[in-house]
Computed example of a mutant assay.
Amino acid sequence: MGSLVGRNLLADAEPGTAPRMGFFTDTSVCIGCKACEVACKEWNAVPEDGLEFTGMSYDNTQGLGADTWRHVAFIEQDKPMGQADSDMRWLMASDVCKHCTRAGCLDVCPTGSLFRTEFGTVVVQEDICNGCGYCIPACPYGVIDQRKGDGRAWKCTMCYDRIGVGMEPACAKACPTDSIQYGPLDELRERAAMRVDQLHELGVDEARLYGHDPDDGVGGDGAFFLLLDEPEVYGLPPDPVVTTRDLPSMWRHAGMAAATLLGGLAAVFAVHGRAGGGR
């Protein structure tokens, strides 16, 4: 099993490696075109995931899964957009795997199928995945999923094959409004903070960042967002925490309990041994 101090260390913590790369998704300029969804499927050969009428506005994919690595949400709200004659607005947002700094999915993978790349991203190697499914409940965002008829786990790789040769991920390349931005994570965080300040100056007081804070429950996300409402509105957990946070203390307490039990058994056998020798 993985360790919080083993395979789940960021690659950029090592001197001389590539800077940590990531996504900044600015939902304030998302137009819901779904170009990111299409580009992701085309480049990564992700299967078709259903062309169903869901009743969720123009959202036909509903959420992230094994066959949906980018999901564009359409959220209709009875809130004004600034125009006097408007009584509703649409919030549009392209969701993706968060590539957590402390990734629970990586911690619990027994085969090493999940690994941390030199760019700080988390990738599944489908040829090593044994379909155990441990990673599914380990993700605090509900991102990773098993493919029907396949059993193995699948999710966004941040186009590891593309970024390895200096290309943008397919979704960011296809985005016509630069809602999805790719680059060194530190630079993206600075850019995102400036964008929030800009929106606040324009009177968009509800603009806020999500997943950008290195001190949050997952150590900060490699893919973070600018939102125009509470995270729950977008289907995101308000305060995500890595599900394997307590593993070290659990193993430590289990070890102490086992040592105590063995010590007790040894004492019992010693007493019985002396009693038997006296007869």
Rank of each mutant, 00 (worst) to 15 (best):
M1Y: 08
V5T: 12
L9R: 13
L10D: 13
A11K: 07
D12K: 08
T17P: 01
A18I: 02
A18E: 10
F23I: 02
F23K: 01
F24L: 13
T25K: 00
T27P: 03
T27I: 08
V29Q: 05
C40I: 05
L51R: 03
E52K: 05
D59W: 07
Q62T: 14
Q62G: 00
F74D: 15
Q77K: 09
Q77P: 01
M81R: 10
G82A: 09
A84L: 14
S86M: 14
S86R: 12
S86Q: 14
M92E: 05
K98W: 03
H99A: 04
G104L: 09
G104P: 08
V108R: 00
C109S: 10
F115I: 14
E118P: 00
E118A: 11
V123Y: 04
D127I: 02
Y134Q: 11
A138P: 10
C139A: 11
P140K: 07
Y141H: 09
K148L: 12
R152M: 02
A153R: 02
A153I: 09
K155R: 15
C156L: 07
C159F: 10
I163V: 15
G164S: 15
G166R: 07
P176Q: 08
P184E: 15
V196Y: 02
D197E: 13
L199Y: 02
L199P: 04
H200R: 13
L209N: 05
Y210T: 06
Y210M: 03
D213L: 02
G220Q: 11
G222W: 09
A223F: 05
D229F: 02
D229Y: 00
D229T: 03
D239H: 08
V242M: 08
D246V: 10
P248T: 14
S249Y: 07
G255P: 01
M256F: 13
A259F: 11
L262W: 07
L262I: 15
L265K: 00
A270T: 15
H272Y: 10
R279S: 13
